[in-house]
Design a binder for these strands. Structure first.
Length: 265
DNA sequence: ATGCCAGGCACAGCCTGA
């Protein structure tokens, strides 16, 4: 394993946010970047600009909504899968899987699920069940694997500034949290929480109510490592400076750094 | 209980996000 930096970023519109994306790539130089909420059809994806920045890319878009991409520095990602197994008739672009830099990467944009209860929440749980099934296979695959993306789940009350005002939100529902806990029960390591067990760390601050200035955030973007990759985890963090820029996405990038050698067992 | 801000599209008010 070579030292790697892997990031996930819900960009909230890759076309309107392209200058911010390029500035972030240039400053942070992630080896692998998973993007969500492209809000662009494939023919609108800014491939040339991203390649000019030194990144190969795979993308699964659709007009106006959703959309995921995997960017790899100085290389071409090898596509493994587009779409989640069991969701073949899903018309929403939410999952892309690729191999790059010796790692298998699943880039996901889990459904929001609001309002709940209702069909959108049912769809979220159905999608999550398919993810759990696929994640189980990936976990024991023998390949160093990461699941990265916007999971649209606040895992615990420590992952939100104030759960009371969100108690009815799909992101905090016991059923949503139970699915996330099932991922952890499979053995996946939540990189941020593993390295910072007691800290309040957020990845999303909505545009309402001055939440960014008040640091009233949620942690919903996650990087999960399987048993073959977790021993290499060295560092993790949030590029909060991105959220402070003009016309920023409501999410900030989250990243991990892997070391060349195993660090733990 | 609802709107708040923002992107995208049908380019004018909706729909969606979380």
């Amino acid at each position: 394993m070579k030292a790697l930096r892997i990031a996930t970023f819900n960009i909230n519109g890759i076309r309107s946010r392209l200058p911010a994306l390029l500035a972030w790539l240039e400053r942070e130089r992630p080896d692998i970047a998973c993007l969500q909420e492209l809000k662009a059809a494939d023919r609108q994806f800014p491939r040339q600009e991203i390649e000019a920045a030194g990144y190969g890319c795979l993308y699964l878009g659709q007009p106006a909504w959703n959309g995921v991409a995997i960017l790899t520095r100085d290389s071409e990602p090898l596509e493994v899968r587009r779409g989640l197994p069991g969701m073949q008739d899903d018309d929403q672009s939410r999952y892309l899987e690729a191999a790059a830099h010796g790692v298998l990467v699943g880039c996901l944009y889990l459904p929001n699920g609001n309002p709940q209860p209702g069909p959108k929440f049912d769809y979220k749980l159905r999608w999550f069940e398919c993810l759990l099934k696929h994640a189980q296979a990936l976990y024991g695959s023998g390949h160093p694997t990461i699941l990265a993306g916007d999971f649209n789940v606040v895992p615990t009350d420590m992952d939100i500034y104030n759960p009371r005002s969100w108690v009815k939100d799909a992101l905090l529902q016991p059923a949503s949290r139970a699915c996330f806990e099932q991922l952890l029960a499979q053995g996946w390591v939540d990189a941020i929480r593993h390295l910072y067990p007691d800290e309040r760390i957020y990845t999303f601050w909505d545009y309402f109510r001055n939440h960014w200035a008040r640091n009233a955030g949620l942690r919903i973007d996650h990087l999960l490592l399987n048993r073959d990759l977790a021993p290499y985890l060295k560092q993790a963090g949030v590029d909060a400076w991105v959220r402070n820029e003009a016309k920023a996405s409501d999410h900030a990038p989250v990243w991990i750094e892997l070391s060349e050698r195993r660090r733990r067992h």
